[in-house]
Computed example of a mutant assay.
Amino acid sequence: MWSDGRDSVFANNEDSPIGDESVFTFVPASAAGYGYFYMTFPYLAEPFMAGYPQGGLNEKGLAYDITATPLVNQVEVVIPADTPYSGGNIMELVLKKAATVDEAVALIKKYRASENIRRAAGVSEFRQMQALLADSKGNAAVVGVGPDGELAVTEKAGKFRVVTNFSLAQPGNSAVTEKARYDTATEALKGMKKAPVSAMRSLLAAVHVEGMASTLYSTIYDLRSLDITIYNFHDYEYAKKLDLKTELAKGAHSIPLAELFRDRPLFALRSMKEMAASVRSLQEKYLQGQKELDACPKTAK
């Protein structure tokens, strides 16, 4: 995220295992709250994260995205018994109800967890994730679990804020120690006097990842104009541009990422999906073989 107080830009690479299918969903304003859009992976095998809003933007120019932050020594988020339930997903609630970073942080601290996760497991998703929040006024902050189990807030210092997959609240306890992407992005943003789409695109390209887990899509939001720029599978030469106001005026609807980029088939994406499917098939066969082997009667020597 970068802002000079006049322009505010939010950029994200979504890195995930090959085969995860992304869907962009638009929800118009109503008596319940602001209009907004968010991205999900509806078909994830992990039950709590299937359909979890990975990031999004609302009509007030509030944006967020989350990063996984596994810890070496797990710290659970403290949820006092009198903490109210959120009534739904906590990050979608942020998009629906918050216009500023301060309002978003207050909501997260109030509820501490999405209701379905808390009721099912008694924990908060912030135990292993952090959320970068930014608004049209240029404010930004990162929310994650601190070493004491309380939700810690890391404010923006200067014009920008960078997050990757190590915990800003607990860097010494983070299972992810790689900081090359963080350092690369930080150095690039330090020198920026303006942050047009072209500059942010170059930055996203510099820190994208490839392999069985790849950058599946990238987004750039102008938090003032509400323009959305989307790139598919780290193909930074071809973008789709959406206007949030125009999309919300169409009513509630969802757009699969594959449909949005149907006119730009990518050989690399197709071949990586085929490879990922083959690897998963081999893994499943191996695990099934292990189960059958374990079930066989053991012969005494």
Rank of each mutant, 00 (worst) to 15 (best):
Q130F: 02
P84V: 15
V123D: 00
A104T: 13
N89H: 07
D135I: 06
A98W: 00
V101K: 01
N116I: 04
L93G: 04
G122A: 05
G88Y: 11
I117W: 03
A104Q: 10
G87F: 11
Y85I: 00
S114D: 11
F126I: 06
L95A: 10
Y85L: 10
G87N: 07
E125G: 05
L95I: 12
K97Q: 15
L93T: 09
I117N: 01
G87S: 09
M129W: 02
D102C: 07
A131D: 11
R119L: 11
L132E: 09
R112H: 10
A120H: 05
A131I: 13
E92G: 10
A131S: 12
L133F: 10
A120C: 02
A121G: 03
P84H: 13
Q128R: 02
A98C: 03
K110A: 11
Q130V: 06
N89I: 01
D82V: 06
D135M: 08
E125R: 07
G122S: 04
I108L: 08
R127F: 02
V123F: 01
A120N: 09
E92W: 04
A120P: 08
L93D: 04
V101A: 00
G122D: 09
A120V: 08
A113F: 00
L95R: 08
N89K: 09
R118S: 01
S86Y: 01
S124V: 02
L132F: 10
K109F: 07
I117C: 03
N116H: 08
E103P: 03
K96C: 14
K97E: 13
L95V: 14
I108H: 11
S114F: 06
D82N: 14
K110R: 14
K109Y: 10
A121V: 11
V105T: 04
E103Q: 15
A99W: 04
M91G: 07
I108S: 13
R118P: 02
R112V: 13
I117P: 00
T83E: 11
E92M: 14
A131L: 11
K96E: 15
K96N: 11
A120E: 09
M129L: 12
D102S: 15
A121Q: 02
K97P: 08
A121L: 01
L93F: 08
L93K: 15
L133V: 05
L95G: 13
R118F: 01
A113P: 05
E115K: 13
A134I: 08
S86L: 05
N116G: 08
P84L: 05
E103S: 12
V101E: 00
L95Y: 12
R112C: 10
R127N: 07
A106C: 10
V94N: 07
M91I: 13
V94H: 09
N116R: 13
G122C: 03
V123K: 02
E103Y: 03
V101T: 03
I90C: 12
L107P: 14
S124N: 05
A134Y: 06
R112D: 10
